[in-house]
Amino acid sequence: MWNEESDWIGSFDSQLARLAECRMCSRDRGERPDATGMDLEVLEVAEEGSYGRVFRCLDIHTGALVTMKQITMVRLSQGVPAPIIREVSLLKELHHANIVKLLRVGLTENRYVNLVFEHLDYDLHHFIVNRGYPKDALTVKSFMYQILSAVAYCHSLKVLHRDLKPSNVLIDHSKRLIKLADFRLAGEFADDLLYTEKLGTSWYRAPEILCDSRQYSTQIDLWSVGCIFAEMVIGQPLVQAINCRDELEGIFKLLGTPTEETWPGITKLMPNLHIYYPKFDALGLETFVTDLEPSGLNLLSMMLCLDPSRRISAEAALKHAYFIDVNYVSLLLL
């Protein structure tokens, strides 16, 4: 990786040679690109986000619709919020048809960091709530395949999304194209990495996180994808609770209270499990998710498996029999 020419602590001679090549007596380089004006015409304020406002804009040069997230650095003590740095740096590295494109980053008045994204029509939450959810089984299948493709790609690069939910899944309506967005909580994972935040929205949060485990991996994203899958089919979140404890109770009612047999290590993770939670017998996914073909139900049960070590991976999920009739050619052409 390091040779004498490129190494910044390389030999004295190579430093001298490299500097000699630079135009030391000429004018220095100009301002960084996009440091001030973004060359965008603001059409409307789309929403007020947690870090600032989101605008729907028109790119003056290309005439294309774009989405601009304007992050306001209101807290002097904080600087650029860590989640924003993470999101931007990750999106600079992630290049996939099913991941939203970050077009450019700009700065205005040393106070706003502007993130310009490709524009998509709406998110999956809006699609489910306002459009009567995708009743067409093939649309569900296509959306699921695309979500899993993006997740598998992220995991192949050792990146966890950590906040998958319908509002973070964007849709290009005309192309029926799905794109993952909002990588603010995302990060690289390692096998021995301990995470110290309760991440993600509780309705889509994996049971191991709800159980206060600080050691988790790719499986947390698959649980969230399973929750999204179920929601697309039934038109509402599978388990809706106001806090983590109630969320876990809802999950245990659905899938049964875990034991050492069904989830090895659970008693160590939650020593007071049977004090806080009754021993529920599984109601079964099929009692709630009724309009799903058997292979789909099988895939869903493999995603919504309490034991993370037995939960299906994104890569394996893509090869599941449920996707046998997905039109791969049309997906590739998207």
Partner: peptide, 21 residues
């Protein structure tokens, strides 16, 4: 000043601050 330096560093690096294992 540190806020300004942080922004400067991020823009000089084009926000490429992800370091793989």
């Amino acid at each position: 000043e540190l806020n300004k330096l942080e922004l400067e560093l991020l823009f000089l690096l084009d926000f490429r601050v992800m370091v793989s294992s």
